[in-house]
Design a protein around this nucleic acid. Sequence first.
DNA 1: TTGCTTTTTGACCAATTGGTAAAGCCACGA
DNA 2: TCGTGGCTTTACCAATTGGTCAAAAAGCAA
Lengths: 205, 205
Amino acid sequence: MPDGSVKKPSRIQTRNRRLILDAALDVFSAHGYRGATLDQIAEAAGLSKPNILYYFAGKEEIHVTLLSQLMETWLDPLVEMDASGDPMEELLGYVQRKLDMARALPRESRLFAGEILQGAPRMRPHLVADLKPLFDEKCAVIQGWIDAGKLAPVDPRHLIFSIWSTTQHYADFDAQVQVLSGQDPMEGARRYLDTLFRRVLSPQP
Amino acid sequence: MPDGSVKKPSRIQTRNRRLILDAALDVFSAHGYRGATLDQIAEAAGLSKPNILYYFAGKEEIHVTLLSQLMETWLDPLVEMDASGDPMEELLGYVQRKLDMARALPRESRLFAGEILQGAPRMRPHLVADLKPLFDEKCAVIQGWIDAGKLAPVDPRHLIFSIWSTTQHYADFDAQVQVLSGQDPMEGARRYLDTLFRRVLSPQP
DNA sequence: TTGCTTTTTGACCAATTGGTAAAGCCACGA
DNA sequence: TCGTGGCTTTACCAATTGGTCAAAAAGCAA
């Protein structure tokens, strides 16, 4: 009974749950929720299908578990944006952290993108409960910076949208980026996005 | 034999093929390739499943047909960008056309996004054959504008990437945008993106 | 070793799904 | 009105897939 409420997980349990979740991340991010099969996940994890179902109640629970864990990681760079820091530095730093994340965790980025793309059927509660408050808070912070004349006036909400979309693009649309820009585009992306947001946010004298 | 090489399609054929493709666009864009079923498509089209398969050889052919048709529409706004026009106007016009497209054709945008997200298994040939040459050509045009001092220096490839990602974001991540920005965000997006790219591209005196 | 719990597996199942075959229907020109 | 060929449906199939179950195996404390 691996879900036995109080008992702490054995070493085998933590190892196998981790194996399964990592395999599932591979498969889900590559084929989407419906496109992934338990057999694929089982094979990728090196376990049998019934054994997978010994650790997770079903396919959906695996997916939901991944999404929940992902939420933390995903919000982290935004959480770090500090209202008391230098506005331009904070925002450009956020852009870089987001871009680093897309480079380091493309599977997670694609898993998230796939979920949203299909209307966030399993994630909307998380969005409303976790993302929305943080989003509103940080929008207020940015608006404060703008009102103080530290940044050029822009709509903070759309600013954040554009940071998300431009950075995650390199993970989510990698297949396209690869076709179009041959060699490693990440260093170029780093420079371009820094320029982009620096020019947008620089207050006009 | 609806595919009979030479015969021109009957009125029933054009009507039903259109019905099927429209239904398939609904279903594929909402659930992804693997997540869509022929039964769903059949029901949405108001036809029986075997009847669907009378007009298309199989599920994959429907998907491929949609993607091929989409490619034209998708490239169109970029094709319209004219090397002999005013650089700033041409680029900002392109941004607006792209955004209008995301608003008017969200299903198409999501279909495309889903395909790329999963590694473009059925579309890579199209990308290489159709998108890549156009992309390279327009990058050269933009580079020419920059060299002529008409635009601030940026990497044209990443500039185009950022135009694509910021505009399509409003279609592809609609579920998230809805949660975060309540009312209709499109007018705000229009203004924001105009400001964004205008500031980035304005040559410094 | 013994005895108990945790983990793993092979066999199986019902539902779904893409696809087929053949018979029936229907429009329309001769 | 009667064929004829294009269109539609009913009945069906084999493969896949998420999931179950009971028994076997492996840990592990005494």
